[in-house]
């Protein structure tokens, strides 16, 4: 009975830590993608303004800084997760779940055309990453 409760508590703790990594990571990646889309092709910017101009264009974007903040939170959540769980659990779980949340967020917030081909690819990669970990 007690071992069952403890196992359930440790399951919810693991799920909570992985969910934190997934949500913060997705928020960071969508904000960063929005920033990069809003400034355009970096190769074109570098050709016009040099490497310094390209770096300046990136680091002065508020969306990018928001993305960096959430990515930093995701990074430290990942470190915390790796300290408590195996990479073979955290890596695939976070990677495959982030793929699904990112696909939904990209369609909703970045207005990307996520057609059947992209959904198929996202699901195949998501399940493939899960299988690869077992």
């Amino acid at each position: 009975m007690i071992s069952g409760v403890l196992a359930q508590a440790s399951f919810w703790k693991a799920a909570g830590i992985i969910a934190t990594v997934v949500v913060t990571s997705s928020t960071g990646e969508v904000l960063t993608a929005a920033a990069m889309k809003s400034m355009g092709d970096l190769d074109d910017i570098r050709a016009k303004s040099g490497l310094g101009g390209a770096i300046k264009a990136v680091v002065t974007s508020p969306l990018f800084m928001g993305g960096i903040f959430f990515m930093a939170v995701a990074f430290f959540s990942l470190l915390f997760a790796l300290n408590h769980m195996n990479l073979s659990l955290v890596g695939p779980a976070a990677a495959s779940l982030t793929l699904v949340t990112n696909t939904v967020a990209a369609q909703l917030f970045l207005h990307e055309k996520v057609d059947r081909r992209r959904w198929t690819a996202a699901v195949l990669v998501c399940v493939g990453v899960y299988f690869l970990a077992h």
């Binding site: 990646e29 969508v30 960063t32 993608a33 990069m36 889309k37 400034m39 355009g40 092709d41 970096l42 190769d43 793929l99 990112n102 696909t103 990209a106 369609q107 970045l110 990307e112 996520v114 992209r118 690819a121 996202a122 195949l124 990669v125």
Partner: peptide
């Protein structure tokens, strides 16, 4: 990400 979609780069 500056020349491709997020849903392209990820997979």
């Amino acid at each position: 990400l500056s020349w491709a979609d997020l849903t392209f780069v990820m997979p």
